[in-house]
Simulated scan of single mutants.
Amino acid sequence: MTNDDTHGAILADDSVPGSADGALVELRGAGKSYGNIRALHGVDLTVHPGRVTCVLGDNGAGKSTLIKIVSGLHQHTEGEFLVDGEPVRFSTPREALDRGIATVYQDLATVPLMPVWRNFFLGSEMTKGPWPVRRLDIARMKRTADEELRNMGIVLDDLDQPIGTLSGGQRQSVAIARAVYFGARVLILDEPTAALGVKQSGVVLKYIAAARDRGLGVIFITHNPHHAYMVGDHFSVLRLGTLELSAARSDVSLEELTNHMAGGAELAALKHELAQVRGVDTEGLPEEADLTAPTATPSAPKATTAAPTATGSEGTA
Rank of each mutant, 00 (worst) to 15 (best):
L108P: 08
V277L: 13
D137W: 04
D5Q: 14
L82G: 07
A209Y: 01
D190F: 03
H74P: 05
Q106Y: 08
W131F: 13
V55I: 13
H226L: 13
P286M: 02
L245N: 08
S91H: 15
D233I: 00
R140C: 07
L240K: 09
T304R: 15
R51D: 05
H260C: 11
D44W: 08
S250T: 10
Q200Y: 03
K63I: 00
L113F: 14
D146F: 03
I208S: 02
G202A: 09
V52L: 04
A39K: 00
P192M: 00
R185I: 08
L205M: 10
S33E: 04
R134V: 09
G60Q: 01
A23M: 09
I101D: 11
R118D: 14
E288F: 09
L159I: 12
R249T: 02
V88K: 07
E287I: 02
Q276S: 14
A12W: 10
L245S: 06
G29T: 04
I163A: 02
L113R: 15
G22S: 05
A268T: 03
N259R: 11
L156I: 09
L257E: 04
A109S: 15
G85Q: 04
N119F: 05
T222K: 01
G264V: 07
G264W: 04
V155G: 02
I101N: 11
